[in-house]
Amino acid sequence: MNEITRRDFLKTSLAGAVAATFGGSVLAEEPAGSEVIVVHGADAAAMLAAGVERLGGWSAFVKKGKKVTLKVNAAWANPPEHGSNTSPELVEACVKACLGAGAGEVVLPENPCSPPEQAFEMSGIARAVKSAGGRMISLRDDRLFKHVELPGAKTLKQADVAVDVLETACLINMPVAKHHGSAGLSLSMKNWMGSIKDRGFWHSKGLHQCIADFSTLVRPNLVIIDALRIMLDSGPRGPGKLEHPGLLILSRDPVAADAYSATLFRKEPSDIHHIRLAGEMNIGCADVSRIKVTRLDV
């Protein structure tokens, strides 16, 4: 176990060093935020390393000794095979990689739908986070939220948001891609609903607009969408029909990542209202034809 950790550490730090030396100049030529890396493979850790390396390596995201906030989807008391939560092996790999890149701590705040203890245990994420050295935070305590105004929003003018999401050196959004009964699809922007206190407001005042509104305020440094297995119907809880694309979708632009991921479900991104709205509000690029897609095979 130790050996692998060390090797991973060396690999990631080496990748970081390489990227820091050569990657910067490559990145500078491209318009930031409209690039999507699509990694295909079977080993989540290797896929993650390859994808992040292409985006500049972990050192481009993780600041030495500072906090990393990782927002996974651990909403449901379901086993990983159902595809309703982020895959635990991916979570474990990501926490390890962040710590390996010098993060002071990795926290994973989540306000699950199922009772927290069962959601975290049954999803396998609690165990993964513990073994990787991160810290899971159950957002069932009012003191963990901060009330903020959203000046750029149309409907969601204010919200109570997890402090760890607002105040962090590096914010990573790592949802699972799945069908969703009311939001159409649950991708990265929808995933923020697990970091707020009052979800009911969103549903009652216009779900899609609120999802888009929230992304005007909370802008992740990195989006990693888990499409190793995707749930095609009966979402968000499942169990539903599964497909196994074996993909990770990485981007700095949440809207672009969501728009690309929508195509995995054979849907037009513009059919998913919140993706279309986010594009119209210029939060990111919702037009797949304008997104630069880089495919990697690991």
């Binding site: 969703h180 009652s204 005042k205 779900l207 009966s234 809880r237």
Partner: peptide
């Protein structure tokens, strides 16, 4: 009901129902 009377995308009940 937010959906029936309010015309909003809600279906939170469906989302959470453990028994479909």
């Amino acid at each position: 009901c937010i959906a029936w009377a309010g015309g909003q995308y809600c279906m939170v009940c469906d989302e959470h129902c453990p028994y479909k």
